[in-house]
Amino acid sequence: MPLIIKKTSDIKSSEITPKSVYLDRRRFMKQVFASSLLVGADAMLPAWAKRWPDLPQSAFKADDKLTSLEDITSYNNFYELGTSKTDPAKNASLFNPNPWSIAVEGECNKPGVFNLEDFIKPYALQEYIYRLRCVEGWSMVVPWVGFSLADMLKKFEPNSKAKYVEFTTLLDKSRLPGQSRRVLNWPYVEGLRIDEAMNPLPIMAVGLYGDVLPNQNGAPIRLVVPWKYGFKSIKSIVKIRFVETMPNTTWNELAPKEYGFYSNVNPEVDHPRWSQSTERRIGEPFWKPKIKTEMFNGYGEQVAQLYTGMDLRKYF
């Protein structure tokens, strides 16, 4: 009588569904929908298939037309997954953001290491519609899912020596293969002055368009600082440190004359190699002229007071 039940050794490892895949039923459903409908997968996706289908809107909300999910997820600067704009989407599947933990360190009373679920559990998620202006001269409007950075930082009780907050991206060549080429000084590091970080605008984002963050957009958790150039909004964060001195941030270290620590969106201060006075809004027809860039990306009312008395040409 033939043996019907296969021995473990008979099953090729390629036939076994990876744990991360079979656990993630929602993502699987999405793939099924995406492949069967091809276009407008998100629009067609039933609400129950999204992780957060119906979130309240944040107080600060851009009225601009949203950039499509397709554009937001196919045009990315995430050198850890490749240096061209389309690389991160192509290489997204190589990056598995599960499991994930975040370390909080430095000048605070309640440091610790937390797994992602515990880390985000205390906060009520909201939808934040923010403009994102890249230093390269293009912009998007993204409906992020997240919570206030300030609320999160206060939980760890920063002490009086905490003058800056430093954020670090995961360093792991096997999960972020772009790190095997030393294009940047890995791991990617960004930072904010503590009063910038405590402003109500910046958020920790865990999703966009009502669903978990796609890997190419900085899964599973990233920073969003809407009045600064996009590279300040660091992706895939594993470490948050309260520090006394200004952190050495990645792009600033690479080219200090081109990328300042502050990097506030400012149409009057050009990048040394290109103008910052206008921007191309992604999704607009290519034959239309670019739009004017706003001071602080249009968030001056909320953040201009952070920089009173500072020469923004010097502290660019």
Partner: peptide, 14 residues
């Protein structure tokens, strides 16, 4: 350009 297959930023690609 006509069929909108140049991605999110066609001008950059062109």
């Amino acid at each position: 350009a006509i069929n909108d297959t140049l991605g999110a930023n066609p001008v950059e690609v062109m």
